[in-house]
Amino acid sequence: MRAADVPYEKVTVKNFPKGPDSLAPGHRACQGCGEVLALRLLLKALGTEFIAVSATGCMEVCTGPYPQSAWRMPWIHVAFENAAAVASGVDEATQILSKKGRGYDRRIPVIAVAGDGGTADIGLQALSGALERHHKNFVYVCLDNEAYMNTGIQRSSETPFGAATTTSPTGSRSKGQYTWKKNMPAIAAAHNVPYVATANPAFQFDLMSKIRRAAAIEGPAYIHVYAPCPTGWRMKPELAIESGRLAVSTRIFPLYEIIDGCYEINRKVADPKPIADYFKIQGRFRHLKEDDVAYITERVNADYERLVELSEKFPVKAAPQA
């Protein structure tokens, strides 16, 4: 079956999953953490019949201080750079044990969760290996808060151009991060995996539907999630959702899917809002001047238009009629 045709139940206002969250309260995430919100929604969409694998990072530290755990499904954390490799082992083990009649009597999705550092920097090799090996029940979620927040806001390859962090500070010779954000969804898609998507907790039904789709499709899937971090972004704690909406409406973080190499933009933005609106609620961009914002706007629009071209040239086609 084509990945685009694999059935899955979308999350809507009407069928929003009831019952307790799959991620228990009592976790130690910061006030207003958009990352733990994304995680809570992603896990809630799946229930508890899957195995979760965490990389070291904010989410791991705040959800698993001995003797407590916020995870209501089987969960394992091993180290920082290897969530994809650990998940590979879990996935292959559940499959072979199922074949040998020793448990796991149905398909068990394995959901690996890591931050942007654990994905795009130190974890990239393990992720590449796992995507290439094509593990059947493997879903990888990158919760991208655009810096090493757990160690105190150091820049990563996912830190956006111009953002100030503790290792990309502003100064007389620096305007903050000097490189453009690494395009992880494109890197994931280059591994010929059936499903790649971007998501954002401000668009909660879309986010939750995408993890369900990723888990339903056989073969590795990659979801890159916008994870607003009030602490690291120097933002008021109540603004995580607002920043999420602005990230989409300014084209900074487009929502799209790449299914078997074909593109679909889920929220088309014909008339983008000024990027300055997105920047002004975050202290990390405070130092940027008008010409900096103009330069960023130009590049953001170029990236977006390239995505539109891809979606027109390689659209996700509707299922062929029987």
């Binding site: 228990a24 009592g26 976790h27 130690r28 001995y66 407590q68 755990s69 916020a70 995870w71």
Partner: peptide, 13 residues
């Protein structure tokens, strides 16, 4: 060195 699922509920934030 394991923990029970959802046991952070004991920690009132």
């Amino acid at each position: 060195f394991t923990a029970k699922p959802g046991s952070t509920v004991a920690f009132k934030t």
